[in-house]
């Protein structure tokens, strides 16, 4: 016992250092994959409030830019309205721009919750956005986030009035994406170097991939609807020793200047999840 006390006495500085370092490292390695609380993120009320004050000052710098973006989005949406389409008995007979609306009733599949980015980083290895909406507005962990130009990320953590979004500029973002023309599926990753470029993994190299073909969300996990723009194929390179392409993705959104975003709420996610649970587990080949 006396030896033990002497030991502590002798190495007390190192022990205290190890204790603090242990706390910090355990926070780092557990919270970045699964956040247990919102207190150490910008979703907490103190830092959220500070970010809101900062955003109240700086948001006006990009005002005309974001107005223009919203106007373009409105124009695009307005053109898709039923009122602006000719009826099916148009003069030219069959026309590709006609939308058939023979089924009167639709079930709402996705809901969009509007929000504003109040804080963002893009120089770190894992970058997060802070939004000014939280559980009070219906935001939950795991929901998808988009802007008018494309996919932003997935909600990582949310408090009552703020939420933290893991952006496409993070290591383990893993959004299911697909190349629009050929239908090749894969997963989105980020290597940490360039904020305008990401990677798509899992694309087998037995098929030709056209440069600058569009990459869109696959919609398989129920986080995003199918067909949301992610980016374009900027470069393909064979991975040595594997029958796969290393596809470089040029993001369609400039993550540095994102302001207005929408959080996607999939109303039928539970149904899809329950249905997928019924599938019997596949026997693995290694055993």
């Amino acid at each position: 016992m006396r030896n033990f006390l002497a030991f502590i006495q002798r190495f007390r500085v190192i022990l205290f250092f190890a204790l603090l370092q242990g706390i910090v490292l355990s926070i780092y390695f557990t919270f970045s994959t699964f956040p247990r609380s919102q207190y150490l993120t910008t979703a907490s009320s103190v830092s959220g409030t500070i970010m809101t004050v900062r955003n109240d000052i700086t948001k006006h710098f990009r005002l005309s830019d974001s107005n223009k973006k919203l106007q373009f989005e409105n124009q695009w949406l307005r053109e898709r309205l039923k009122e602006n389409k000719l009826s099916e008995l148009a003069e030219n007979g069959f026309d590709s721009t006609i939308i058939k609306t023979d089924k009167e009733h639709y079930t709402q599949h996705f809901e969009y919750i509007p929000g504003t980015v109040i804080n963002s980083t893009f120089t770190k290895r894992n970058n997060y956005f802070t939004l000014n909406i939280g559980t009070a507005q219906g935001v939950k962990r795991g929901m998808g986030v988009i802007s008018d130009k494309g996919v932003i990320g997935v909600v990582h953590n949310s408090s009552e009035h703020f939420s933290v979004v893991k952006s496409c500029l993070a290591k383990e973002i893993n959004i299911a994406v697909v190349i629009e023309n050929s239908g090749e599926p894969g997963f989105l990753k980020w290597d940490g170097h360039n904020a305008r470029k990401g990677n798509m993994t899992g694309v087998s190299n037995d098929r030709e991939i056209k440069l600058w073909s569009k990459i869109v969300t696959r919609g398989s996990a129920g986080i995003f609807p199918r067909g949301l723009s992610v980016g374009k194929v900027a470069k393909t390179q064979a991975i040595e020793g594997q029958p796969l392409w290393d596809v470089t993705v040029q993001y369609s959104e400039n993550y540095r200047s994102v302001q207005c975003v929408y959080v996607i709420n999939n109303l039928l996610k539970k149904e899809q999840h329950e249905l997928e649970l019924d599938v019997p587990p596949q026997p693995t080949e290694d055993e």
Binding site: L40, T41, K124
Partner: peptide, 9 residues
Amino acid sequence: DAMSNTYGL
């Protein structure tokens, strides 16, 4: 860390 989402780095 709490204000830049770095979780203890």
